[in-house]
């Protein structure tokens, strides 16, 4: 269950970036090659946020498939990694996305009246 430690990293990073401002919403992208399970992460976020007293607002977890860039120039979402490029049927490609977990969107609320 490495999702627990990923959830802890997310809580820590969000708290750091929010710097005391209430978090309103959060969109988390989970790349298919990261071997993090979105459902397990959702469950782990509940647990960790509560245990650490961090408020994450409303969160959404979006699974992101691996993205391949083929030598033919075509870029596509690779669902099945043993299937060839749909444009040229070749396998000479690079994975350009889908190997990370990231907080794509983090919206916090700032009170202007307390700023001065």
């Amino acid at each position: 269950m490495h999702e627990l430690s990923v959830a802890a990293d997310i809580c820590r990073a969000v708290a750091e970036h929010a710097a005391g401002r209430p978090v309103e919403r959060l969109t988390i992208e989970v790349g298919a090659l990261s071997c993090v399970n979105p459902e397990a992460l959702d469950f782990a976020l509940d647990e960790v946020a509560e245990a650490e007293g961090v408020s994450l607002g409303q969160w959404t977890i979006e699974p992101v498939p691996a993205r391949a860039r083929c030598a033919c120039g075509h870029e596509y979402e690779a669902e099945n990694l043993v299937e060839p490029c749909p444009a040229c049927s070749g396998f000479d490609r690079e994975y350009v996305a889908g190997d990370t977990v990231l907080v794509r969107q983090l919206i916090v609320v700032e009170r202007n009246d307390e700023a001065d």
Partner: peptide, 12 residues
């Protein structure tokens, strides 16, 4: 007055 701010994305 409150406003919503979108922060930069964070690689976890």
């Amino acid at each position: 007055m409150t406003k919503r701010i979108e922060l930069e994305k964070i690689v976890i």
